[in-house]
Amino acid sequence: MIVPAVISLAVLGLLFGGLLAFASQKFAVDTDPRVEQIRELLAGANCGACGYAGCDQFAEEVVAGRAPLTGCTPGGAKVAAEIAALLGLEAPEETARMTAQLKCVGDCNVAKKRHDYLGVQDCKAALMYGGGPKACAYGCLGYGNCVRVCPVEAITMGENGLPVIDTDSCIACGLCSRECPRGLIDIVNARGVHHVRCKSQEKGKQVRAVCDRGCIACRLCVKNCPVEAIHMDNNVAVIDSSICTNCGTCVEVCPQKAIV
């Protein structure tokens, strides 16, 4: 009984194996081997920061010359150079490593609450009713949309209701920045350590009324910065990280402790 079964299966196996071998030769689709190689080089987070539908499509587009070599933000300069070498192109100029930074210090201890909110626990949903429960019209709502969209789990919700960004694991894909309905997350040069963590364009008095730590536009940081890296923009101080030397003077002089 066993012999005929073994023989018939072996024959079938050989037959189909032969068919498959023939088909794979005959109907082979020409693919550029470089696509696969580039795919291997990428960071592989499938974050979509390049603007394409995942790493696979980006690899195809880069080989076709339609996507920039530096398109893979998480991979940074290293990946860009590797891609350039593989494609036989000139390596692009090294760009600075970027990272996401939250521009709000208004946690639940310092920012005043205007009302309770019981609905869907989502920043955009909270914003639908009276502009969110916090009194500050610019502050972080704290329902963690950024935490949920981060593809590498670099953002966690802190104890005081403000998200905490782990800048070491951040790949600067920008998803959180685009998700935040208040636009409080900026993608900035990673070498800058200190940032003005407030985006309130209100005047000092109004800011004080709603938050203990918001920027009151007192200009002390602007006056004291030794390298003139700080300027005022719509009642809020902004540090230019390409000039900043990370000396920390602004952090010391800020009366509101809004620069961290």
């Binding site: 019981l118 609905g119 869907v120 989502d122 955009k124 949903a125 639908m128």
Partner: peptide
């Protein structure tokens, strides 16, 4: 569940 609010979000 605040279903109507979710649907409102979807509509927006």
């Amino acid at each position: 569940r605040p279903l109507a609010q979710w649907i409102k979000m979807a509509k927006d």
